[in-house]
């Protein structure tokens, strides 16, 4: 799969998992790695970029074990981005299915 295309999908998945619940960096990487074939070391830079673009905000929370953890929370603009991604993705997939079905007919 084209690496740019894959990166776009990973970005969408990162927004999707954080939109469901606030998460810390390791948790996001772990969650994605379990679900899809992903080059894990690209996830953190994407998280950081999305935060820089205002789709996420961060806050720290103390843990029982050690130093406080940084959590990522989706912002309103992140939620809008998620809706936009979802529409694009649904449209894209329905187009792909349409083509696949045409081929098999």
């Amino acid at each position: 799969m084209n690496s740019q295309f894959k990166k776009g999908i990973i970005e969408m998945c990162v927004i999707a998992v954080v939109s469901k619940k606030d998460m810390y960096g390791f948790e996001v990487i772990d969650k994605l790695a379990k679900a899809i074939d992903v080059n894990e070391n690209t996830v953190y830079p994407i998280l950081r970029r999305l935060t820089d673009q205002g789709y996420f905000e961060t806050y720290t929370e103390s843990t029982s074990q050690g130093a406080p953890r940084k959590y990522f929370r989706i912002t309103d603009s992140g939620k809008e981005k998620m809706v936009e991604y979802k529409q694009e993705w649904t449209k894209f997939l329905s187009g792909v299915y349409q083509i696949m079905e045409e081929r098999t007919e």
Binding site: D30, N41, T42, Y44, P45
Partner: peptide, 17 residues
Amino acid sequence: EMLGTPEAVVDALSEEY
């Protein structure tokens, strides 16, 4: 392996961020 070697981390950061 999960986080990437320091070199891979820096490559990914400078490409993406």
